[in-house]
Write a protein that binds this DNA or RNA. Structure first.
Lengths: 198, 198, 198, 198
DNA sequence: AATGAATGAGATTTCATTCAT
DNA sequence: TATGAATGAAATCTCATTCAT
């Protein structure tokens, strides 16, 4: 590998280390309460070093979420086993997304509550999730799969139920698995509480 | 009314004015970004005056949420029309809760994302909501109403879908009504996307 | 005096105290090398208190010069004894200006070397002085008083010689008087080195 | 040329390149506001490289002025055409000095306002100029040339008027020539505003 | 009860300088 | 010789909180 390329790789790797540390730190205490000092300590650098890799606290914060969002987008592009029915596809994708959520739980939680640049709000982030799921549903749903429900309402309900189980899990049983709830969430999403098969 | 009693009433009223102002201010900019100066200006007092009524910023913040939580608890105690079926009861309570949410939208949104004293977290607040709804469901549901779904899972799904529609509304159409979504949410909760009656 | 008026006076007086202290501090070490800490110590306040009276370091700095410039403008409006010849008028005004300069020597010196808002420079400040003297000369000079010299060139020469004697005085003999040089400067200005009467 | 000698020459040349760049940079933004980064960029080196040639920022700054002062001293040693009268000599030297000033305008302006190590002051630099001109005047003036004016006062006036025209030129018409003012300055210096020949 | 004034503590950011390679 | 990386030290500015009036 030529030196220039190695250099580039090293920088990227350092940036990534810092981002991972920042994700932990922000997840622990939130944006405002996390100081540059905290971020530096978590990353194993001094504060001025962080400024060599990122332009400031806000930029670091933004970069943390970009990284997370990119990863989530990638999961949406996971190739699905062929021959699945709609309900199986939903369950499959739910499981994948929940796995990611589980792995990055702290970040995901804070992500929901983030002040974002230009005053965008939590609601905006939520709406983004809804729209991503809506796009996905359009891709995989066949006529009749959504019953009489609009794409938008379906995506809203799905994200809602999923988030609810995530938050309950965060509050109560982080030690256990989250992705195992995928079948339950799928059923509630498709058939509600009464329509569930015994 | 004796002077002492009037004094007590006045104090309570002033405290309430301050809390209402604080709710607006916190809803606008969040906990950290809202300064005591902001709170005082919004309330029409000077900063030291606020300290005469509350012990500090954190206490003010906590009191804001207590007030909101109390109000929500009261809504749960609203007397329901008699003779309603389960689905009608759910829809009725959803409508009442959504009305409150609509009225206090800003505060409710921030409430979800609040750093709290002693590291309690957003997830904890969510879990509180789930448990309150679970208690309510136990009171109003008759055998069979929840199908094969546990009380806890049912409450989780309900709060999830409700929150989802609230957030979507915040992101997109605050100008319109939120409570009108109560029937839709009820159906999605009970029958999922496929089981909905045409 | 009504309380409100007294309050206003107190604030003005405090601001003035701070400005006087800032003038001393800036004169000692220049703009950049003078810290808010230095300014606060010199004024007998803490740093945050300074921020209650001025918006920041640059504003303080600007205010110092405004104060000085105002005072200099006032000197230009001093009423002159009547019946003076042109040379006597020049000498009179030079003496008054030099007295002010002497009193505020440090500030005046730094004033010449100041980075100013928006990148204006020392030259700009100098040009301002030239133009003020030019206006004054137009007011007091009668036809023939300036010989063949344009108003602008005359003012330039006058400010140049005056400044030169000020700087030499700063470098060598601050202990003595500066205003006593007014007659000499007047002669050099009017007649040059050779034309001087014995 | 032996290698060692070439090396020495190379080092001297590199130092000079760096100084020229530093002069530009300092002239643009002043001492404090110019960072080592700025200096390195202007010179086409990296920051640590600058440290290989100079001991630090202050040393670089000092070296810039030494270079300028040396050059000015050299101009004072320019051989003058023979047979000139005093006024012609003054005009000749003024023209040469103004040419240098014009070429290095930015540096010269900053030079006047330079904080120097050990608290030497701007006034000191001015006084240095006065003394150099005084030495030169003593060399070229013959009895009677200065009229009744002392050498010191004459030099002071000369430097003052010269500086004044320089600063006015900086403020107003950098695009035009400065050295053309030499005759005017000479006349004002010798005969003042009234004594000028038509 | 209400407030003007003041401040301790701390946050982000910048920069000259060093050092291993 | 040249440089990428790292950092100690410091500067400006903000804010919750106190206290005398």
């Amino acid at each position: 590998m030529p030196p220039a390329a190695r250099r580039t790789r090293e920088i990227a790797s350092t940036r990534d280390d810092i981002l991972a540390a920042a994700e932990r730190a922000f997840a622990r205490t939130g944006y405002e309460a996390t100081t540059m000092q905290d971020l530096a300590r978590e990353a194993g650098y001094t504060v001025p070093s962080l400024y060599a890799y990122f332009d400031g606290k806000q930029e670091l914060y933004d970069a943390v979420w970009s990284r997370l969002d990119d990863e989530r987008a990638q999961v949406f592009d996971t190739i699905m086993p062929s021959g699945l029915r709609f309900s199986q596809r939903v369950e499959f994708m739910l499981a994948r997304q929940l796995e990611l959520t589980e792995r990055r739980r702290g970040a995901v939680e804070i992500r929901m509550a983030s002040p974002q640049r230009h005053g965008k709000r939590r609601a905006t982030h939520f709406d983004g999730m809804v729209q991503r799921w809506a796009r996905w549903l359009r891709r995989v749903a066949e006529p009749g799969d959504l019953g009489a429900t609009s794409l938008d309402d379906a995506a809203t309900a799905l994200v809602g139920v999923m988030n609810a189980f995530f938050l309950r899990w965060m509050a109560r049983d982080v030690a256990t698995g989250l992705a195992v709830k995928a079948p339950l969430i799928t059923e509630l999403f498709l058939s509600g509480i009464t329509g569930r098969r015994r």
